[in-house]
Computed example of a mutant assay.
Amino acid sequence: MMAHCGGSPAAAVHYLAGAVASAPENPEPYAVLAELWADKPSELAEVVRDADSLRTVLAQSYISFLQGDMDTAALAIGSVTGVQPDIAWAKAPWFSDERFLGVVSADALAEAAMRTMDYGRVLDTEGVRERFRPWFDAIDVVSASRPSPEALAKMAILLRTCGLTDASFALCDQADSVERIMLTEVVRAGTWRKLGDPEQTTAAFERAIALDPANWSLYLDLADVRAEQGDFTAAVRLIDQGLKHEPAELTLRAAGAAYGARLTGSAAELSELIELAPNLPNDSYRHLLIDHACAGPALPSELVAAARRIQNS
């Protein structure tokens, strides 16, 4: 192999990673990489130390497995999966090996699962569910043997994103059986929201607030749900509660201005939104708030036009 690659460990890694990409379930490239690791561990460690490409990160995942560093192995393959979920990377033989599943921490597997969603790819398809089957199996094993509420809640997000809402709820219930935490209720709320059930979504957010009443973002989340329902009185009240905990928070202030303008037709509220909106980091949320605000009663047309210009900028 080294002769074929001109004696370069980096070239060998590049070649073998390409072979893995074409058939992740084929054990042969991993066997060759293991031989290379046994012969030239320091050179290979140097190649993968500064992982700067998909293929290098992929090699890092398996070399970490060979080193017994299962958490790093999980995180690396999670990153690779996030970049290219159209390839069944987790069908690598080592990913379902007991040496991996018996050791990897729940926190690392949960973070790896979150990384598979980093790029916002559509994962709710039959093809993705088939390619992600090893992830689901790993979640089953680790959640049963090393249950950690926060980790289980994060894993449930991946299940939801892949369209496995019943399994997501079940994992949240399992997390609750260990300890009830705010994150689990937030994940439940998101799953009910995905299913189009606003009442269950609201109930889950209210339980989350009861568990963490000083968390301003929960009030914002619930206010957004109430706004979707057309209940801007409740939305404004919830934003006011959030502002008591974080009065300078930009997103809270913008949402409060938007929902206030929608409820009362306040020109001052719309003016405040116009001032704050350009600084909001999320374009789609900014556009949504402006849509809500501009639907307020009897607002000055010049202010509405100014708000719309922000949407078009």
Rank of each mutant, 00 (worst) to 15 (best):
L195C: 15
M114T: 10
V142R: 03
G230D: 08
D231K: 13
E35Y: 03
L33F: 01
P281W: 12
G7K: 06
D97A: 10
E25K: 04
V128K: 04
A234H: 03
E228V: 04
V32I: 14
Q200N: 13
S177C: 12
V236R: 00
K194W: 01
P24F: 00
V178R: 01
Y285P: 08
G68F: 11
C172G: 12
A306G: 11
L222P: 11
L164D: 01
H292W: 12
L44Q: 02
E228F: 05
Q200C: 11
S284T: 14
L158I: 10
G196H: 06
A106R: 01
A19K: 01
A175S: 12
A175N: 06
I139H: 00
A38T: 12
A17R: 02
L303M: 13
M1G: 01
Q60W: 06
S313H: 15
R49N: 12
A11T: 11
Y30H: 05
K244E: 15
A106C: 07
Q67H: 15
L54R: 01
R146C: 01
T125N: 10
D118V: 02
T201R: 02
G78C: 03
T161I: 04
A23K: 09
R121E: 14
L211P: 00
S8G: 10
N215D: 12
G7F: 14
M182C: 08
T72F: 06
S96L: 08
G18R: 13
L164F: 06
R121M: 15
L109N: 02
A210R: 04
L66G: 02
D52R: 07
W94R: 06
R131H: 03
T191L: 11
D118I: 00
T165E: 11
A204L: 03
A257N: 12
R180H: 08
C162W: 00
G78P: 04
T233D: 15
L183T: 12
L195R: 09
A110Q: 01
A293I: 13
R262T: 05
G18I: 14
L109D: 00
H287N: 14
M117F: 06
P24W: 03
L220K: 05
A234I: 09
R237Q: 15
A11H: 05
Y15T: 04
A170E: 08
A92G: 02
V20I: 14
G230C: 09
Q84A: 11
A156C: 13
S143M: 00
V32N: 11
K91F: 07
W192N: 07
A31F: 11
A189S: 14
L211E: 09
A112G: 09
C162N: 02
V304W: 05
S53W: 08
F95G: 00
Y30R: 02
A235E: 08
L58P: 00
N279C: 10
L288S: 10
G265H: 06
A258M: 09
A167H: 10
E150L: 05
A59N: 04
